[in-house]
């Protein structure tokens, strides 16, 4: 038991876990994007990028999140792809 717990604060409180899970769920619900659809996009991305670089497919992370758009800061879904590159292919240096 640490001092933070004594003051009633915990970093890994289940509330934070709930909020995070909920946020992600709602991003998907609102954008109407299924995990299968995301897998499809991921497959297409791999196909295109593989022509230019060698990537670590197993470590690749494609997900929906949200961002803000325009003057009114309207929240919109955003696609984030984190693709670790192992090596650039020759064609990319042209």
């Amino acid at each position: 038991m640490d001092i933070m717990k004594f003051f009633g604060r915990e970093d890994s409180s289940s509330k934070e876990v709930a909020k995070e899970r909920l946020r992600l769920l709602l991003v998907h619900d609102r954008a109407n994007v299924s995990p299968r659809f995301l897998e499809m996009i991921k497959g297409e991305l791999i196909k295109v990028i593989s022509d230019y670089m060698e990537i670590e497919e197993n470590e690749m992370d494609v997900k929906l999140t949200k961002t803000k758009l325009g003057k009114r800061n309207t929240p919109v879904p955003a696609l984030i792809a984190n693709i670790p590159i192992k090596r650039m292919k020759h064609i990319a240096r042209v």
């Binding site: 409180s13 909920l22 709602l26």
Partner: peptide, 16 residues
């Protein structure tokens, strides 16, 4: 439960 961080509070839900 809200107090000890094990339940979402009012602001969390309104915010979401």
């Amino acid at each position: 439960m809200v107090k000890r961080g094990d339940m979402m509070d009012i602001d969390d839900m309104i915010d979401i």
